[in-house]
Design a protein around this nucleic acid. Structure first.
Length: 572
RNA sequence: CUGCCCGUAGCUCAACUGGAUAGAGCAACGGCCUUCUAAGCCGUAGGUUAGGGGUUCGAUUCCCUUCGGGCAGACCA
């Protein structure tokens, strides 16, 4: 299989359109809106008819006469003003399932491979990770996994905040703490708070902190060693959370802001040389007339502060140069808070103008909204503080443990804990990933852990039901073909065949929620099949076929959830 | 003031270059366990897609406008 179902139908319908003298008309294939319209619908005829001032139903009839779907569709008919409704043949769908069972990539075609940089998570290493880092981390991770699965070369980059004045303060405080024999780096948040307090209250300390910034930036060995030590501790903290979350980011993926230090003066000088950056109010500024300020004039984009300091704009420009010049990326995804949308638009525009990003390199801001509490206001603790990511995940596991215990009172505590981890963490991740990332989303323990509807536990449960079947099966033909007799089987096979489409959409739109919606649909179709078609109690080739269908469903669910970074369980 | 995002069932969310009667889940109500895990399945009810105008065979989707919410807009990221 080298194309998805939609691509196949698109090719065939376009060929038919071309045969009736509409060579450039798009087929506009979509999954059918209602069951009675079949499985897919082609909507392109109406547009083509309009362009040629023809009667759409008449044209549809002509297209239908030329449309070759032999062996693919069992029914093709014209409906409404000129829709072509396509119902796929059971034998064809069975064939696709059989193919997917033997294919190493589960029947998912690989598009031309690209080198894709995915910039995600990017916590500030001065502090502990909090809920604000959750979305970038798991959305980015899911996208990286999907792109890799589709055969792309993914370079994950953790653009951590490891530079800036706050690190002067922290190293100064680290010196103090070490002298006092108290290296309390176990709680980063507390360490930061104490350092900040010293900075605000003690002028001598504040001066020392500023000196440390200068020393750090000047390459002073002692301060740099302390800085490295601090980063190491902070990164360990992040990695512990990545491990708990099942996020694949590794130490070698870290390429922090500091990595671009040497290139910052070069960038500014280059922008000046190109006549893009000019001095304004003591700062180096690029005026972009693509963007207007409050007075309707070209908006200023600062690349160097008055006093010579650099900003994130400079760092990001340097990163573009690196990703283009050294990494030769075809595509760069920035999985960053939607509030930075303007910054990215400006930065992308300037990167093009300055020639840092070649025309063939796609720069995409994968923005997302903020997490809200159930009151609709930004997600905070009862006391109004920032919620630590570690605390959130801990609570997820605890809540899941309580629920697992309710359902399995006789189960050993150890097993319950394993299930609780997969379910709790999975629920948190899925609740986030299943929503359109563009909008803010309401974080609700109750709905994500209700285990009903479009949730991770529902999908995990579907998987365990299959696992349970295979625990009970004694013997069957593990190479038996899938044969479709029942409509529930056909619907399940159709859902299975759409896996590739879902992944393709996710990769193209950088929207993980399409994969979630797909998996939910697949699980729902499986549940219906499971209710309607006895597996172990059936006999002969039907039993073998149904077991094979179960097998492919399980693999697809496991693979799909895996691409979201969510574990499956044999039992729950 | 300017720009971006958003407004869909009581609640949380879908709707893939504009397609047919706008779909799910929760909550509500009614069915289904001597049969592979009922964390399930089936059914009922619930809508002027914030309001108004426009484009066309067709608009939740595109354009204009009003209202409401969020965010951003020169030295934080």
């Amino acid at each position: 299989m080298n194309q998805t179902l939609i691509e196949l139908l698109d090719t065939r319908v376009r060929a038919a359109l071309a045969a009736v003298d509409c060579p450039d008309a798009p087929a506009v294939i979509q999954p059918a809106g209602r069951p009675e319209f079949g499985d897919y619908q082609a909507n392109g005829v109406m547009g083509a008819a309009k362009a040629r001032k023809m009667n759409p139903r008449q044209l549809a009839t002509e297209v239908l006469a030329k449309l070759d779907l032999a062996g693919i569709a069992s029914k093709v008919e014209i409906a409404g003003p000129g829709f072509i409704n396509i119902t796929l043949a059971p034998e064809y769908l069975a064939g696709l399932s059989n193919l997917a069972l033997t294919d190493a990539n589960m029947g998912v075609p690989h598009p031309p491979a690209q080198r894709v940089v995915v910039d995600y998570s990017s916590p500030n290493l001065a502090k502990e990770m909090h809920v604000g880092h959750l979305r970038s981390t798991i959305i980015g991770d899911a996208l990286a996994r999907v792109l890799r699965f589709m055969g792309h070369e993914v370079i994950a980059q953790n653009h951590v905040g490891d530079w800036g004045t706050q690190f002067g303060m922290l190293t100064a405080y680290l010196i103090e703490a070490e002298q006092a024999g108290d290296v309390a780096l176990s709680d980063l948040e507390d360490f930061y708070r104490r350092a900040k307090q010293r900075f605000d209250e003690d002028e001598v300390f504040a001066t020392h902190a500023r000196e440390c910034v200068v020393k750090l930036q000047g390459g002073d060995a002692q301060v740099n060693a302390l800085w490295q030590k601090f980063l190491d501790v902070s990164l360990h903290h992040c990695e512990a959370l990545y491990a708990k979350l099942g996020v694949g980011l590794k130490r070698e993926d870290v390429r922090g802001e500091s990595a671009y230090n040497d290139d910052l003066p070069v960038v500014v000088a280059d922008l000046q040389a190109k006549g893009l950056a000019v001095e304004s109010e003591g700062a180096q500024v690029v005026f972009l007339d693509e963007f207007k300020n409050k007075d309707g004039e070209a908006q200023a984009y600062i690349v160097q502060k008055q006093g010579g300091g650099y900003l994130y704009a400079t760092t990001d420009l340097a990163a573009v140069r690196y990703r283009a010049g050294t990494l030769h990326a075809d595509r760069v995804l920035y999985v960053v808070d939607a509030r930075q949308a303007l910054h990215f638009q400006q930065m992308f525009t300037l990167s093009r103008k300055a020639g840092y990003a070649p025309a063939g390199m796609s720069l995409e801001h994968v923005g997302f909204g903020v997490m809200l509490g159930e009151d609709g206001k930004p997600f905070k603790t009862r006391s109004g503080g920032t919620v630590k990511l570690a605390d959130l995940l801990e609570e997820a596991e605890q809540r899941a443990y309580a629920l697992v215990s309710e359902k399995n009172q006789e189960m050993p505590a150890e097993e319950r804990a394993v299930i609780a981890k997969a379910v709790g963490i999975g629920a948190v991740k899925y609740a986030d990933l299943s929503k359109n990332r563009n909008s803010d989303y309401v974080f609700s323990w109750d709905s994500m852990l209700s285990f009903e509807g479009n949730t991770a536990p529902y999908l995990q449960y579907a998987y365990t039901r299959i696992a349970s079947v295979f625990r009970r099966v004694e013997t069957f033909d593990t190479r038996a073909p899938i044969i479709i007799n029942d409509e529930a089987e056909r619907q399940l096979a159709l859902a299975l065949a759409r896996f590739a489409e879902a992944l393709q959409t996710v990769a193209r739109e950088t929207m993980p929620h399409f994969l979630c919606a797909y998996l939910y649909e697949l699980a729902t179709q499986f549940m219906r099949f499971y209710e309607a078609c006895p597996v172990l109690k059936s006999e002969g080739s039907v039993r073998d076929s149904r077991l094979r269908l179960c097998e492919l469903t399980a693999r697809t669910l496991k693979t799909g959830l895996g691409l979201l970074g969510i574990e499956t369980l044999e039992q729950m």
